[in-house]
Amino acid sequence: MDYLFSDSAAKTILFEPVLKGANHLCILSTYATPSMASWLLKSYEEQGITDITVDLIIESVMDNGIDDASHNSFRDLHKHALAEYANHFSCSYMHEEPSSKNNLFIWLNEDTPVQAFSCSYDFTQSSLLKKRSGSLVERSAAYAYKIYEAAVNSSIYCTHAEVDDYIVVRPSSSQTLASNDKHPENFVRLPLIVKKTGELGKKSGLNWGQRKGRNKNEAYIPLPCKIAKSGFFPLNEQHFLVVTDDHHALQLRVEQQNDKAITTPTSNALLGEYFRNRLGLANGAYIHTSDLMAYGRTDVTFYKIDDEQYYMDFSPNSKRQRNG
């Protein structure tokens, strides 16, 4: 995956220090997205980088709050990183001064600060993974870590039982779409059945895992080449957060040869479990075309909120017609 970030700030900030023996990354970022955190953890995993601890503190929530979709996604990553990845992740929110108003990335080797960067790059994919200009300078690791430690004392874990008393968690744009049916014009509709046959793939798409030795829940949403090349979805295996019409949050990415599939990067089975649950089927069940017909939907619609957040509608056609 080196080609994905060879010309971006991510290589310098997030990967090169690991080669020098650093194993603990402390991030104090003005703005951050769960998709970036998910991407980083998955990238470490796919490159065989293990025993890395990533601790993130987000400053912007102190003044602007955070949308509930991002909040819940950060909570899921915080809770499940040890179970899903060979690395540790935590997320905290600043709730009082002092605030550095700068992005700091501090690397430690065990408990000793060894390298630090002060930069204009937020902890987002659009900031760190794209070829864009920005300021990036090395700082005294010890001094930068003192700033970070001060922020720790002014922050609260995203999983804390009383986090709502300190931070405003506001409805996401996706939830607003779900409640008022005023969808943006920027959308695509992806068929779940094969156009030539009018049937579901027997060992592809939602039935991808229906092969010997595979998790039968494994699935992907087929992505036509024309839409993959249109720029609607982020490519190069970047992650994006999707809120569904039934109020679930999923981290997805485009992958496979020719960018033909949308999957859940943590586990391909998560997407299959989601659709089987919507269809009223047991985990691992083979999905027939008739199951989709009985449910009332043979496609899924994605609405783009921004570069890292989307709304996915898989409501039955009868319900959509009533609401429309």
Rank of each mutant, 00 (worst) to 15 (best):
G48V: 01
T244S: 08
G65K: 14
D63M: 07
D51Y: 14
T112H: 12
R320N: 13
D67A: 13
S6Q: 09
G280A: 11
Q115P: 03
V18A: 09
A22N: 15
S43Y: 01
H239F: 03
I156Y: 05
K229I: 13
R214W: 04
L104K: 04
C119E: 03
S135V: 15
Y145D: 03
I57V: 08
I106C: 07
H239L: 03
A151D: 04
S154I: 09
Y310L: 09
G272A: 00
S315D: 06
Q321C: 06
N153Y: 12
D306I: 03
T124L: 02
I66M: 05
V242D: 01
D63A: 10
K20L: 06
D2H: 15
A151K: 11
A141F: 14
N277Q: 04
K260C: 14
K130Y: 07
S155D: 02
L40Q: 00
E46I: 10
V243F: 06
G209T: 01
V243S: 06
K212R: 15
W107V: 04
D76C: 01
R132I: 07
I147P: 01
L104N: 03
Q257M: 13
Y3S: 13
K11F: 02
N109M: 11
P184Y: 12
K131H: 14
A261M: 10
F187S: 13
E45D: 02
Q309L: 10
